[in-house]
Write a protein that binds this DNA or RNA. Sequence first.
DNA 1: TACAATTTGGATGTCAAGGTCCAAATAGTC
DNA 2: GACTATTTGGACCTTGACATCCAAATTGTA
Lengths: 147, 147
Amino acid sequence: MISPTAEYALRAIVAIAQGGGEPVVTPTMVEMTKVPPGYLPKVLQTLRRAGLVHSKRGLGGGFTLARAPDRITVLDVVNAVDPIKRIERCPLDIESHCAGLCPLHKRLDEAAEMVEKSFASTTIAELLAGGEGGHAPLCKPTKSDGR
Amino acid sequence: MISPTAEYALRAIVAIAQGGGEPVVTPTMVEMTKVPPGYLPKVLQTLRRAGLVHSKRGLGGGFTLARAPDRITVLDVVNAVDPIKRIERCPLDIESHCAGLCPLHKRLDEAAEMVEKSFASTTIAELLAGGEGGHAPLCKPTKSDGR
DNA sequence: TACAATTTGGATGTCAAGGTCCAAATAGTC
DNA sequence: GACTATTTGGACCTTGACATCCAAATTGTA
């Protein structure tokens, strides 16, 4: 459905959001998100360049959200990393003769649209709230207390 | 949204369906679907192993649908080639502590479920009918008459 | 039987995504 | 200034999906 990298980005954003405004540091996020340690920085850089997070180097540094959690949507994050591709033209080379999409590609695009809308209507804040299940945002490691 | 190969498979199925029961031969399908000529046979083999199409070798051979077009869904084809992955467990290694999904993965799985249902409710026959737009099933090459 | 039209299977090539690693830059603290 | 904690950027490796190509196997026809 979405790429591994997009999933990583979402986990990372949630982890940062859980910091409640305090900078969250990469090793902490690795522990929370289980993203491959060497890869997480790459993902975070992408999010930074997209303007979704701020970063600060050195002692006391880390990552913070660029906007409030209720102003960042799942779609924002996914699009920053691995944009959802809508189908505008029939991809069978001849653009000319395909004013509207043929039935196949219309259906495929409808599916993409559904997902896009679903992602756009979900904010990071909602993921923190725990939803109807009251479940922890990220299923944290749980070693006794988490150390 | 779906992989190139899955799209190729759908185009191929539609092309075969347009044959109306007569065997359709690979070069013809290449022209109709614009799938890379050397790659189409691979896709067709996958569809055959999945039991969606029948094949016959030699002169007068080609591919036919294994079932009527209204008994094959888009989901059947997609799953044969590149299955839609539902999220059953929270993928953060600890299966134990994640009875229900955490909010993030619940949302992601909901999106997957929507797509799955959408694909399951669309038959190949519907793609042939031309939909509301009355559009050609595959936006055929259109060179004058198609040679 | 010979031949042409097909699918079938395997060997191989190519490329981008995912992933690792490390040196450099930056920033706080003693 | 020395030291430590961080991010940042670049070089590099690995793997699977996409794709090509060709030799076999199969099947109809003359």
